[in-house]
Design a protein around this nucleic acid. Structure first.
Ligand SMILES: [Zn+2]
Length: 239
DNA sequence: CCTGCCGGGGG
DNA sequence: CCCCCGGCAGG
């Protein structure tokens, strides 16, 4: 868990110690797997590509070997199970072959809002076999001003982990509802996966995105931007 | 139900 | 101007 990577999804759950990188030869018919980069390159070069015949020109090396192997990151210890449990929180049916692949996006807390994860540039993922070229679409989100978090300290709002942390290992299925004066109503329907939005900018459907009202809540009306207080178009969180 | 906001109203 | 709210469209 390096300092500059505390938001990285993969790094959080799979600290380096628990991940092992393997290199698998992808030459048709060959499945040789080695544990070092140089090892696999040597294998590819000697076993499949011919011997390296190039002059002493220095940078004449075609890195052709790179096209015939992939990196595989394999989780080694328990962390994977922890993660797997979290993932399997909901899926009812499950009896096929064990290793679920390409599962990174999901497993977010039931309802974080303005906190998303930014995948590492390489998009390589544990337990998933992803080529060295594979790149998962990184996404960035307009993070609201940090000052926006000050309010929730002194105010009500019982649970709601809204910290820039990764999904908490404890994600109880309960939904606390204390019907009283202060505890205002707020209920969140299960957010649908919202698959594939459109392309660049599809259209201006309905102004989506939380505005002051939803962010701070009715009980903190004085924190809203003026426009929101007057029930006008929000000027703080624009679309 | 809840939210965002236009349009209209009052000081 | 500043401030509020009825009421509606879209979830
Ligand atoms: Zn606002």
């Amino acid at each position: 868990l390096s300092a500059d990577c505390n938001v990285c999804f993969v790094c959080f759950f799979y600290p380096q110690s628990s991940v092992k990188t393997l290199f698998k030869c992808t030459w048709p018919g060959c499945g040789k797997t080695l544990s070092t980069c140089s090892g696999i390159e040597r294998h590819v070069r000697s076993a499949h590509l011919g011997p390296k015949d190039e002059g002493e020109d220095g940078d004449c090396s075609d890195h052709e070997e790179e096209f015939y192997y992939t990196e595989i990151e394999v989780s080694v210890d328990t962390v994977a199970d922890t993660f797997a449990n979290m993932c399997a929180a909901s899926p009812p049916l499950r009896q096929l072959s064990p290793p679920p692949v390409h599962q990174v996006e999901m497993a977010r807390p039931p309802h974080e809002d303005h906190m998303y994860f930014q995948l590492p540039p390489t998009g390589k993922v544990v337990q998933a076999v992803i080529t060295s070229q594979g790149a998962a679409a990184p996404m960035t989100i307009p993070v609201p001003p940090a000052s926006a978090f000050a309010w929730q300290q002194s105010n009500s709002l019982p649970s709601s982990p809204v910290l820039p942390m990764a999904p908490t290992p404890i994600s109880p299925p309960f939904r606390q509802r204390s019907n009283s004066a202060s505890a205002r109503q707020q209920q969140h329907q299960a957010m649908s996966p919202k698959t594939a939005g459109s392309v660049p900018f599809p259209r201006k459907i309905r102004s989506e995105g939380k505005k002051c009202r939803k962010v701070y809540g009715m009980e903190n009306r004085d924190l809203w931007c003026t426009q929101c207080r007057w029930k006008k178009a929000c000027s703080r969180f624009l679309d």
